Simulated assay, not measured.
Amino acid sequence: MVKITDVARHAGVSPSTVSYALSGKRPISEETRRRIENSIRELGYRPHAGARALASSRSNVLALVVPLRTGIHVPVVMQFAVSVVTTARRYDHDVLLLTQEEGEDGLRRVADTALVDALIVMDVQLRDPRVPLLRSLERPSVMIGFPGDAEGVTCIDLDFKAAGELCVERLAGLGHRVVALVGSPPEVYVRETAFAQRVVQGFTAAAARNGMSSSVHPCEAGPAAARRVAEQLLREKPALTGVVVHNEAILKPLTEAFVELGLRIPEDLSVTAICPDDLAASLRVPVSSVALPTAEVGERAVELLMQKLNGRTVPDATLLTPKLTERASTAPRNVP
């Protein structure tokens, strides 16, 4: 069985320094902390959870607050959750998953107990009512997403505005002049969910900048809704040659609907998407896409929390730069 003295010897530090790194009771240098964390991983050291919690007055549990509201695509949410749980275990923390729509009451209920050391909050809205409470809590928190007013809170996410812009810029570079955004379900926009709103902002701004005709079409999940949107677009936008999809649940049925309605991808219609890479690559015509960095966001959210728990200063805002992967679904506009 690996002991704390074994970790200390492997890292070239004293046992007390290892203890400080685990408990956060005293500051240590970043280089020393990295050596200790590497030694813990290499040796497979597992601190006694009860003793560590008692010594540090911590529970060694993080709360992941992700209300499963209507319109949320659960498979993507679970990718974030898996990344958070996996990373938390590297720091010898467990994760309490809170999925009820309880708003401020749920946060306060958890924060007022000794159940968790810190909180990660998802499904952030532009006017999120939980933000004032997070500012006032003594427990550290990180939001995966950016509210309209992010002052005083720590946030991390993909730069969704830039992602929307990137998809449009690619279509503009291929000569497309009439484009549409097929977006999240209507209720997501009604709630002013931040990431969805920012995709719309980026999409419309880039289309205007390039002198393109553009429109935004929320879409419910499911093949029937995807078919209705495809039919509406072809009826109302006969010159349409470019589509951006920001709705993982309907990417496959939407592209299939366009093909069934007589369009060839990419000869007649170029398609880009903001979605997980594995989904984009799995379609009959692989879709050019901006990946959702769920693993990186979840990992870095936990790392930010652990730094805050250990008394270190972290950046208020962490925006990940989007990257577009070219696949077979985009081509130059076919000019008759």
Rank of each mutant, 00 (worst) to 15 (best):
Y20E: 08
E151T: 14
E104D: 09
A230K: 08
S56P: 10
L234M: 15
V153I: 11
P253Y: 05
E296R: 15
P27D: 09
E37L: 14
S215L: 06
A172D: 07
V95L: 08
R300P: 01
L107D: 02
F203H: 04
V95Q: 04
K323H: 14
Q79E: 15
V216F: 06
L134D: 00
T86H: 14
T241H: 02
R135H: 07
G44R: 11
E248Q: 14
G71F: 02
R58A: 12
S329P: 06
V13E: 11
I40L: 13
R9D: 11
N38E: 15
S282N: 08
Q125I: 00
P286R: 09
A180Y: 03
S215C: 11
S289A: 15
R127I: 00
R284S: 13
C275V: 15
S329M: 07
G44M: 10
R228L: 13
R198E: 14
A53Y: 01
G148M: 03
P129A: 08
S136I: 05
S289G: 04
P147Q: 05
L320C: 08
N310W: 14
C219F: 02
R41H: 11
R284P: 00
V290E: 02
G71S: 10
D6Y: 10
A230D: 06
G262P: 09
R284E: 12
E296I: 13
V182L: 07
L309V: 09
A280R: 05
P27V: 10
L62K: 02
P185S: 09
S29E: 07
V110I: 15
V82I: 11
P129T: 08
V199S: 01
R127L: 09
G71M: 03
L320Y: 03
R127M: 06
D94H: 09
R139N: 04
I250E: 01
